[in-house]
Amino acid sequence: MQKAIDLFYRVLEILLIVLMSGMAIMVFVNVVMRYAMNSGLTVSDELARYFFVWVTFIGAVVTFREHGHLGVETLVAVLGRKGRIVCMILSNLVIIGCSAIFFWGTWKQLPINWSMKAPVTGLSMGFVYGIGFFTGAGCVVIALERLVRLLTGRVTQEEIEAFAGENLTLEQMAERS
């Protein structure tokens, strides 16, 4: 099971690399074309923007799994183990609520996005705004799993430390400024 989950995130990471490179290449080619040939592909500006939306919302799930989203740990850092666990439970409940609302809102809005076409490519905006399903569901699943482990006492010391903002990696600090 753990292997399958790791593989899933590996695939997501590869997808992030492809999308990130894709949007850089599209915008770069456009700059070059504008100078070399005095013309540009309007398609690539639009598509780059959609890649950007996908990177943002796929990456949001990947970084959420890695405790990458920045928080203010001032208060929880002074709490003891018990206090931290209570805060973690509450915090996961808030995250589950917000992510579920995000998912539900995406569902309710699907018809009006599905019927809207992107101005240049003609792509249905359902594909762009539909990413809310992935992010909403992804965060609900991750937070639910954490909640279950918190309530059954299977939470690890590392997780508690990560929650209190201890032992940040350099990459995580870079993500914060």
Partner: peptide, 24 residues
């Protein structure tokens, strides 16, 4: 209360060409 306010504003926020400067 309307869940669509959350969904729509979240995604419309990233759909901005100017913000593309950030990843680059």
């Amino acid at each position: 209360f309307n869940t669509q306010i959350i969904a729509q504003n979240m995604i419309a926020g990233a759909d901005t060409f100017t913000l593309l400067a950030i990843p680059f």
